[in-house]
Design a protein around this nucleic acid. Structure first.
Lengths: 191, 191
DNA sequence: ATCTAAAATTGACCATGGTCAGTTTAATAG
DNA sequence: CTATTAAACTGACCATGGTCAATTTTAGAT
């Protein structure tokens, strides 16, 4: 039933991930080149693609892990009691998602799982974000409208978050910060 | 002040666009190859990139034109009087945006203008969609909440539209159609 | 220890988007 | 008509993601 995975495999995979993280730390996500990663990891190019379906799959791992960390931090923080506090709590997530245009593109591309059997880290992070929003919205300290199911409310928060972030990359709407844009959305949505 | 654009230029550009449209008609957007386009247009590869910054810029033109047509059609239709009617009116837009995963990706990537001086067709289509929503929302036949500015209401419609479409590509949420998902969002948002 | 099959790895090779120095064509001046 | 200059065009070349038949390594059986 289980696949017999060799220790060698895990080691190679770790070398690739470590090399990739080093490249990202030095030059950012967009500048990452597969060739650079495999050279640092000391493996052949083909090995990379034996471990990751494509370059995007590596990005899924890297970005998903980062998102997970950020969300864990947010979840460990206090329960927001207003829309404004919710925006403040989400600030680290917004900062990361807007740090590079490329990051946002990749995140969007992986936000939905392509298939049930292969839910990637980024898709999981979106689920985590949804659950966190759901938790916030059902907490008594945050007064919200009660005429719609909390699940819908939580999904809406996600929709406005994406909207606010994507407008950050738009020259037409760059006069206000993402946070300033998100807050009125959430206030109106949560009523 | 004006740039002296030669008739030859327009002709070459038209040949490229026509060739691209033919390829898309035959095989879809994702299958489009620059090499194929230039061969059909009878020009060299370099010429393509003298006319379009990159392949994405061509896609911006093609998809933007298509979106504009669809939005013009929708605008020519009747004023929706309920959230359900609004979803019905938006159906052609949804159908196009979900026709290919690649289409959605490109549209998202161009949804915001990268710079004030170069607002592409897709960004314009988003503006058009916003204005149409604004028109709908300020029409007396559609009863909506009046505690928030109509501009915010219109932007929210856009946010939920994107959310519903992006969930269409998500295996985790594929049990319901985009329209079925969008309607409760809009009902709740418009109150 | 040796054999064997499966897993892991390799690197030459391919596909495709994108670049640019050099060439051709068109517009304008004299 | 010819010279001059700027615009348009060309295609060889590059950059980079991705493939795959061949090779090496590992785990397990005898």
């Amino acid at each position: 039933m289980n696949k017999p995975v060799q220790a060698r495999t895990l080691k190679t995979r770790a070398k690739l991930i470590d090399a990739a993280k080093a490249v990202v730390a030095e030059s950012g996500y967009e500048a990452l080149r597969v060739e650079e990663v495999v050279q640092r990891a000391g493996v052949a190019k083909g090995t990379f693609f034996a471990h990751f379906r494509d370059k995007d799959a590596l990005m899924d791992q890297l970005l998903g892990a980062q998102l997970r960390e950020i969300l864990d931090d947010i979840a460990a923080g206090p329960q927001p009691r207003t829309a404004a506090e919710m925006v403040t709590a989400l600030a680290p997530l917004i900062a990361f998602a807007t740090s590079e245009r490329y990051v946002f593109d990749v995140v969007i591309r992986h936000s939905g799982a392509a298939a049930i059997t292969e839910i990637g880290p980024i898709a999981l992070a979106f689920e985590q974000q949804f659950r966190l929003s759901l938790q916030w919205v059902t907490h008594p300290d945050l007064p919200v409208r009660d005429d719609i199911p909390p699940e819908l409310l939580a999904e809406g928060i996600g929709a406005f978050l994406i909207q606010a972030i994507s407008l950050a990359f738009c020259a037409l709407h760059s006069s206000v910060s993402v946070e300033e844009r998100l807050e009125p959305y959430l206030r109106a949505w949560l009523r």
